[in-house]
């Protein structure tokens, strides 16, 4: 098994025409992901990268049976794209685009919650690096060549930190079941807790690396879930010990505004839940090895 993405996903691409969309669509196809169509308003009926193009997500879903979407549309339009996917019955939506206005995300989340739970789309991102289940599927922008099949799950807010961890595992001959980039915007879809829950019941995952950072409180919620429900080892890293308060460190969500959001305060809260913490980001592989 793996979580969220395997060989079954039928993937459409929203915002495929741009440089990023084109580049990563090709890479996903090369990887073996079942990309079935693209959605480009006004270009419906044409072809791009040998894929059929539809005007709307609804058309694409009806014609191809797509259940998964990946979004590269630029930030002013990405909120609209997410809602269109939810409306069309897409089950899993990965929004790579970041820097989306907060109020757009507030509305997107509110809109998605309006669906009955059984029909509700799972949103990963925005600002996500996507999902990769090595040997099965890539719906994301990971450089797949150093992701090998295995039994470690990775959840990362920051894309590059997830890559770094995967690369360290690769060098140490450790494989990955699924790696998910959840993004580090102020408001995001899926959280650490929801993904820990999935890894908890995934037969192929033996241990999880959780890569958090400053801003927000979701790492602390994840630590509580770990303490109360997690049956597998999890190691965590919180980036931003050296970050000052009130400064936005690259990501929209990486800003300390309230108590509990700094790295030191989070680490304190994680320790209280007995979650193992790695303080050196160059030793992820060694640290997870102990638990395999």
């Amino acid at each position: 098994m793996s979580i969220l993405v395997d060989k079954q996903n039928k993937v459409i691409v929203q915002g495929m025409l741009g440089e990023k969309g084109t580049f990563h669509t090709k890479r996903m196809i090369e990887f073996g992901t079942n990309v079935v169509a693209g959605v480009i308003p006004e270009k419906g009926g044409s072809e791009y990268l040998n894929l059929p193009i539809f005007d709307t997500v609804c058309d694409a879903v009806e014609q191809t049976g797509a259940d998964t979407s990946i979004i590269f549309a630029s930030s002013p339009f990405a909120g609209d794209s997410m809602m269109e996917a939810a409306d069309a019955g897409i089950r899993l939506c990965i929004c790579i685009t970041g820097r989306i206005p907060q109020q757009d995300m507030m509305r997107v989340k509110r809109y998605i919650k309006g669906f009955d739970e059984s029909e509700r789309m799972q949103l990963i991102g925005p600002g996500s690096a996507g999902i990769i289940s090595p040997g099965k599927g890539l719906v994301g922008v990971m450089p797949s060549y150093f992701y090998r099949e295995g039994d470690v799950g990775i959840i990362a807010r920051a894309g590059t930190l997830g890559f770094e961890a995967a690369y360290q595992l690769h060098k140490a001959d450790i494989g990955i079941s699924t790696s998910v980039g959840i993004g580090s915007e102020t408001i995001t879809g899926t959280t650490f807790v929801e993904l820990l829950e999935r890894f908890n019941t995934d037969d192929e995952t033996k241990a999880v690396i959780m890569l958090g950072e400053i801003g927000g409180l979701q790492e602390v919620e994840a630590a509580r879930y770990f303490r109360d429900h997690m049956k597998k080892p999890v190691i965590s890293y919180i980036a931003g010990v050296a970050a000052p308060k009130g400064k936005r460190m690259g990501h929209a969500g990486a800003i300390i505004t309230a108590y509990g959001e700094s790295a030191a305060e989070k680490i304190e809260a994680l320790k209280e839940c007995n979650m193992p913490i790695v303080s050196d980001p160059s030793i992820f592989a060694e640290s997870i090895k102990e638990f395999l």
């Binding site: 920051a158 590059t160 980001p281």
Partner: peptide
């Protein structure tokens, strides 16, 4: 390159 790695570098 990358905000997360940049944060981690400051930490190191």
């Amino acid at each position: 390159n990358g905000a997360g790695l940049a944060l981690a570098t400051l930490d190191l």
